[in-house]
């Protein structure tokens, strides 16, 4: 017989949100720290560089840079991970509202928030 999941153990919107958020901040911090270590291992750092070296958002360049062990590109991947953390949280909530809680109203609300947020992130500016 399959063991029944007790109500307190069942994933809820709150517990999954907390889990996604914590996973996101911990993993992005670790990635950024690795990037810093690679940067210092491969060269020097100056205030001038810190203040002028901007983000390159293109995923292709970031992936290429990570292949070559460039610290800055690893940091950029970490920043992306952090930026997508709240969005992933909204996505996970909409799935739970829809399929676990069967709460159609909040599933729709959350899904629209997800679309609006992605539109803002990807198209604005």
């Amino acid at each position: 017989m399959t063991s029944q999941i007790s109500p307190s153990r069942r994933p809820t919107v709150s517990s999954v949100s907390a889990w996604v958020l914590r996973g996101g901040v911990v993993s992005s911090s670790l990635v950024m720290l690795v990037g810093i270590m690679f940067t210092f291992a491969h060269g020097t750092m100056s205030i001038q560089r810190m203040k002028s070296d901007g983000f390159d958002y293109r995923p292709g360049i970031i992936i290429e840079g990570i292949r070559h062990g460039q610290g800055k590109r690893i940091i950029e991947a970490g920043i992306y991970l952090l930026v997508f953390t709240p969005i992933l949280r909204v996505f996970a909530s909409s799935i739970l509202f829809a399929f676990q809680d069967r709460d159609r109203l909040y599933a729709v609300i959350t899904f629209v928030v997800l679309l609006l947020t992605l539109a803002g992130l990807l198209w604005i500016g």
Partner: peptide, 8 residues
């Protein structure tokens, strides 16, 4: 406008 080495 996001400076990676400041953001970390």
């Amino acid at each position: 406008l996001v400076l990676p080495f400041v953001v970390v």
